[in-house]
Design a binder for these strands. Structure first.
Lengths: 190, 190
DNA sequence: ACATTTGCCTAATGGCTTTAGGCAAATTAG
DNA sequence: CTAATTTGCCTAAAGCCATTAGGCAAATGT
């Protein structure tokens, strides 16, 4: 069973690397063992099972993503902050598709609570402080932003925009501009 | 190999059912064969392989989803149409979580071209005719709507909103109102 | 009646996951 | 320094899954 030595970290990190190379779904104990030049059974010293491996990669990705977003956000506010955050998110997905897919992995309640997910929503709330929204609207806006970012990047990764014009980058910029405009003019509740 | 008899349809339909029961990811030839009371190998008369099975379920789900959305859209325009379409989308996801997950399955270019994906974007464009957007803005808006719908429903299905208030339904309504407002006041390009 | 097609079966191969039990090198303690 | 412990890995083995090949009986069409 998981003896939690320093090598356990290395295994998870290698798993993240592998995810970017062959896709998160394909990261299995046997594939990872092959990559590490080790027998499959040996991995079970560092990871409980296949699901646990994926969970740990997901947690790593969420941390990394939060770090990047946090760095991008530093010293910015308003539309600047919104765009920097959104770009950090999208850039991460482009540079680390496997890790990004991992970040979408459905965590069980326990893992989710211990994840960097909290940091993500805190950052979004920080961005929204630059707009004039009340507490409740802010929650709706957080959910909207989360939906747009994960939705857009997900569709883009799935190739949804690659066979039609204009280029995705153009829509991305336009959509962020539109969201900024929306946040500055959020309609009163029906 | 796939002899494409009338039973092939039945198999795919049963696969969709099973997806709703145990989750799309868990729908495998062996699980489906168990469900149908048949030997695993027998399925290979109707389906090329596991990937082909998933692809066929995905295509079925996309058709169903397009049908529901199309029905919901009939006779509506403007905000009404937007909300009816969005609700059809979300309701389908709630009632058929496995099928909905299937609809997100990454299709290869060939399958994607033969899918109902085209109908989906046509319907979105139809909705947008009720707003004053030029051709290019319409494309951006289609991508935004697609992102919000798939992103929101995806996060909701992943339990993203279930442990915080307010209830998801409230945000959904508010977000649709906000999107309507945004579409009526789409900002001029930067 | 005969030929074909359909739907299913058994048998077999090979890969992946996971558990159990061990062994040698590195680390820590006395 | 030496002994105990921990770490990291290994072999062996069971069980499940995907997939291919070859065959058989019932339904269907000629």
């Amino acid at each position: 069973m998981a003896k939690a030595g320093p090598a356990a970290e290395r295994v998870v990190r290698a798993g993240a690397e592998l995810a970017d190379e062959i896709g998160f779904e394909q990261v299995t104990p046997s594939a990872l063992a092959r990559q590490l030049g080790v027998r499959t059974a040996s991995l079970y010293s560092h990871v409980k099972n296949a699901h646990d491996l994926k969970t740990k990669i997901a947690l790593l990705a969420l941390e990394e993503l939060a770090d990047q977003a946090s760095a991008a956000l530093a010293g910015r506010a308003g539309k600047d902050a919104l765009m920097a955050f959104a770009d950090a998110y999208r850039d991460y997905a482009v540079q680390h598709p496997g890790r990004f897919a991992a970040a979408q992995f459905r965590l069980d309640a326990e893992a989710a609570a211990a994840s960097a997910g909290v940091r993500h929503s805190q950052m979004m709330r920080a961005i929204l402080r630059g707009y004039d929204l009340d507490e409740l609207q802010q929650t709706h806006a957080v959910r909207l932003l989360g939906s747009v970012f994960s939705g857009y990047v997900g569709l883009e990764a799935a190739g949804g925009f690659s066979h039609s014009s204009p280029a995705s980058q153009e829509s991305w910029t336009e959509i962020l501009g539109a969201l900024d405009s929306l946040l500055r003019n959020w309609p009163a509740a029906a």
